[in-house]
Design a protein around this nucleic acid. Structure first.
Lengths: 321, 321
DNA sequence: TTGTAGGCGTTATCAA
DNA sequence: TTGATAACGCCTACAA
């Protein structure tokens, strides 16, 4: 490995002169500077990230923690993050799994964005207390070193339910996310509020998991209890897809016997027949905003929490009754 | 930031004793060791990654470079990689974009897996020469520090084309990937070989880009030239989907007027109506193998290149003629 | 304008 | 069994 020491030797100057030249300091003659730069290039010099990070106490790397790499939501979200990061001189690394958590407290990264409900809030708070900078996308967490960029779950769930009511549905299943999911809880709360105003409607809650399997299980239960057309609000699209898959294996028709709406507007929903009704929001903007907020708290700015707005996407998966 | 120095002070021992205790060396008494560990926990000590990396010249981090975060191929691939990495004591970070390249030569990571045709081979070779360890999934590159884990593109393309021929098709469009894509070139080569044996069939090549837009453009050209039913082999599923989308906006029917086959068997194809015929392979296995190979070359093992085998998935998007 | 030297937090060698 | 001390590669006062 070639270090500034090697360059210094070859150039016949001291390592500090090399360091200055490399960092474009004006303290060094244009002549020596260009000679040093030339030699550095000749030797294929690359600065050592660990040494720089150790000295400067910043790595210019931001982390993104995900539950897994499979989610369809992530593509645009990550591209949005990357764009902002790069524009601000940061690099983005995406990680998943408990083992990867260490990279935050060990200061491999200057901060992190969290979209992983399996990452314990207590752990995040602990990191925040030790002055690590964090943006959460999936929970409410109050600390000066933590910023929230949350979906407007309540608006989304309300839009979804009101759409079903508008279409005349009187029996509505709601398939939830996993225990402890903030998004799921928020959406359920909104559903409950609308439900309280409509006691002529029958409400049935089914415990789900935000994965396809949750939707499949819900489908079983719904078909078993089936008497007349019903509506189903799956609290995310992936479950809606699982439910849809299971239903289309049977005689039941989506949009006719079982009316279905999801949440997230992932790309796949466009290809479902009938098209899945769902709740849309800009994933790219979500990611971009998260990065911006993170960079701001790293810079020491005082900032407010942010919210991502949502809208209804109608689809033939919901018919009139 | 609390360092081993702080622990040493509080425990009344030297920093080297602390370091030994922390690393579970048997050179230190069980008693002092447990006292030190206790204090470390009290102080919320976390080792500093930069310092450790600087000293040990390894970070226990592997990188994965992708063209972008949107690809549907990636989910299982990355999960496969992560599983192997974690089992072997490594962490995986996923990156994208030119700016992120620096992390490899700067030794932020002990090695990297490349699935990004925009990453120049010359640059990779340069890194390999400087002793960085690399596994490539998307090109042939010979160097002791580079290992290849490649799809069996030729087998896949041959399977696809022979399936079309078997179904009686006599006019076959082939939509390619972007200029310079290894996968695209390999697949085209296989197509060409089959084509050479069948001069009763009309072959038409359309330049694509492995994205939806490529498929859409191809659709335009195909419809413009349309006289009788034709077959189309899109060299990846994403283009097949773009083509499919454009076609379904018209009077033409997939599987009737336009017979379509893709490559990759991404999840979305399951939901297309009619189901897309395509070429399947285990993305999870691909990722797992890539990680294993990378860890082996880091360990200094001498290994052979690997190949991922593929199979045909039939679908109603291809009918008999 | 350039050089000297100290230190970032660890690990590891050698003495004690 | 423990402690002093010298690296690792880089940055940056301060001195020359």
């Amino acid at each position: 490995m070639v270090s500034i020491k090697d360059i210094a030797k070859k150039a016949g100057v001291s390592i500090s002169t090399v360091s200055y030249a490399l960092n474009g300091s004006s303290k060094v003659t244009g002549e020596t500077s260009s000679r040093i730069l030339e030699i550095a290039r000749e030797l294929n010099y690359v600065p050592n990230a660990a040494a720089r990070t150790l000295k400067k106490k910043e790595s210019k790397i931001l982390g993104m923690f995900l539950t897994d790499f499979k989610g369809d939501v992530y593509g645009d979200l990550l591209d949005g993050m990357k764009e902002v990061c790069n524009a601000r001189g940061y690099d983005l690394v995406v990680c998943s799994g408990k083992q990867a958590h260490r990279m935050l407290p060990e200061r491999m990264m200057d901060g992190a964005v969290i979209l992983d409900h399996t990452f314990p809030s207590e752990e995040l708070l602990e990191y925040a207390r030790r002055n690590h900078k964090i943006v959460v996308l999936d929970r409410e967490l109050e600390h000066p070193n933590i910023n929230q960029v949350l979906l407007d779950n309540k608006a989304g769930a309300t839009l979804a339910i009101e759409y079903l009511l508008e279409q005349g549905h009187k029996k509505i299943y709601v398939v939830t996310g996993p225990e402890g999911s903030f998004d799921s809880n928020q959406r359920m709360k909104a559903v409950q509020m609308v439900a309280d105003r409509h006691d002529d409607v029958e409400w049935i809650k089914i415990a789900g998991n935000f994965k396809k399997s949750g939707g499949e299980h819900a489908a079983e239960q719904i078909m078993e209890e089936y008497k007349e057309p019903v509506a189903v609000f799956c609290l995310n699209d992936e479950m809606a897809i699982g439910l849809y898959n299971r239903i289309t294996e049977t005689e039941f028709k989506i949009g006719e016997h079982i009316h279905l709406i999801g949440f997230d507007n992932i790309e796949l929903t466009r290809y479902m027949q009938p098209r899945l009704a769902t709740i849309d929001y800009s994933k790219r903007k979500w990611g971009a905003l998260a990065s911006e907020q993170l960079i701001k708290i790293i810079a020491g700015d005082h900032i407010e929490h942010e919210r991502i707005y949502v809208s209804l996407v109608k689809g033939e998966s919901v018919g009139k009754i």
